[in-house]
Nucleic acid binder design. Sequence first.
DNA 1: TCATATATAATCAAAAATAATCATATTAAA
DNA 2: TTTAATATGATTATTTTTGATTATATATGA
Lengths: 255, 255
Amino acid sequence: MYSEERKKIVLDYIQKYGKASVQELTEVLQVSEATVRRDLKDLEDAKLLKRTHGGALSLQNVNFEPTIGEKKVTHLKEKHAIAKKAVELIDEGETILLDAGTTTFELAKELKSFAKLTVVTNAINISHELLSHPGIEVLVVGGMLRKETLAMVGPVAEQSLGMIRVDKLFLAINGLDLEAGLTTPNLIEAATKRKMIKIAKQVFLLADHSKVGKVSQAKVADIVEVNQVILDNAVAEDTLNQLKTMGITVHLVHP
Amino acid sequence: MYSEERKKIVLDYIQKYGKASVQELTEVLQVSEATVRRDLKDLEDAKLLKRTHGGALSLQNVNFEPTIGEKKVTHLKEKHAIAKKAVELIDEGETILLDAGTTTFELAKELKSFAKLTVVTNAINISHELLSHPGIEVLVVGGMLRKETLAMVGPVAEQSLGMIRVDKLFLAINGLDLEAGLTTPNLIEAATKRKMIKIAKQVFLLADHSKVGKVSQAKVADIVEVNQVILDNAVAEDTLNQLKTMGITVHLVHP
DNA sequence: TCATATATAATCAAAAATAATCATATTAAA
DNA sequence: TTTAATATGATTATTTTTGATTATATATGA
C-alpha cells in the first residue's frame, strides 16, 4: 500500500468517526505508530485535519459551531450597519416587534434616540437592554426561554403575540434561500416567528450575507411574505435582482 | 477524550448556560480541577471566554451584565436568609412561580442545586439569572415591562398566567398588614399578583420585617389567601401569633 | 478591618505520546 | 543488477499532559 492510499483511508476514517487515535490507525493501516504520526503530520500540514496528543480530529470537530457569541464577533460590522439602516426605517411613535437575534440586539442598542416608541420583543437580552432607554415602552412576549438564542417561544409566546398588532416586525433568520425560503434550526422557534409575521403590518428581514443561500431544518415562511429586506453588500447581484423581482424592497448597506 | 474535544465541550457549555464553574466542568469532563483551569486559561488566551474566580463566563454575558441601574437593596441579609429558607421548601421536579422582587431574585440565585425544576417568572432579572442554571427550565410570563421593579405585568401577563398552573408561588410584597392585607404601590402590578395567586396550589409569602405593618395604594389580596409566610425574626411576636391564628404556617429565619 | 474559607497558581512526579535517530527494507532509476 | 533515494520500524530521548500537593491570592462575612 502506498502512503497516499493510507492517507486517504485516514481521512475517510476521521470523516466517519470525527476522530481517530494513533493506536486505532496502526490497527486499521497495519503500520507502526511512527508511520501513522508521519501521515498525520502531512495531513495536518495540508490542513485536512487537526492533530492532538494521542490522535487527530476532523476540522469540523474543532471549528467551533457558529454560535451567537462568535457570529456576533465575526459579522459584527455587517450587523451593525444593517441595524443602523433599520433604525432609519422606524418612525417616532410606532410599535415595532424585535425578534430575538444578534442583529436585532444591535438594533435595540441603537434605539436610544427615540422619544416615544413601543417595542415588543421575545428576546430576553433585548428586553434587558431596553430598560435603559427612557422613551421606550417595552412589551415582553413570554414563553419558554431558549437558552441557545435567548428567545421566548412556544404556545405562551404565540398566545401573547395574538393579543398584539405591530406596525413593523424586524425579523432575524438563520437561512435565507430563494427556493427554500426562510429557515431556522428550531421547529418551535420557527412557529413563533411565523406568528410574528402574522401580526405585523410590515415585515423587515435583517440578514447579513452569511445567511444567504443557507437552509436550516425548520421553515418559517416563504420569502414573499417579507416586505423589505436589509442586506450587506457582499450578496450576489443575482440574488438581489431576484428579490426585487418578487416585489421585495431591498436595502443594501456598506459596512 | 482529547484536549481539543474538551475545550469544545467547555465552549458549548458556556455558550449554552452563559457561564460555568470549575466544579461543574470537572464533573462534565471528568478531569481534575487543574486540567479544567488549564483549559480555561487556553480558551481565555484565545479570547473565547472570560475567566472569573470560580469559573468562566461567555463573552456575551460579560457585555450583558452592566447597564441596569440597580437601586440599593435594603435588608439584604434578611432577604438572603429568607431566600435560603424558601429553597428548603421546594422539591425536585416541581413547577414554581417566582414573583418579581429582590427577595425572589435572591431565591432564584439559590436554585443551582436543583437537577430538574420548572420556574415560571414575570421578572426580567430572574429570567436572566436562570439562564445559567442548567437543570432549570424557564417559562417567562410576558407583559409590559415595569422599569421600577423589572416585572412584566398587565393583560398579556395575566393571559399568559392563565395558561399555567404551578405547585408553589413565591410572592413578594410591599406591604403586609393584618387588616389591610397585602398591598403594593402599582394597580396593574397588583392585578398581576392576584392572578398569580389564582393559579398556584400553594402561596408562599416572602417578607422581611420592614414590610410588616406597611400599607400601599393597591390591594393584592387578603392575608388568608397565603398558605405559608417566611419572615425574619425582627417581627413582633404578636403579629406572628395572629398570622398563626389565621391558619398560616409561619417560618422564621435568623439572619 | 480582619479572619476564614475558597480558589488559583506553582511545582513536581508519573504516565503517555511524540520526535529524533538510526538501521533496515522497499522502490525507482540508471 | 546496481545504486541512490525514499519509506518504514525499532529504539531512545524528549516533550506533553495530567493530577496531586503546597503555597499564594482572592473573596466573603463577622
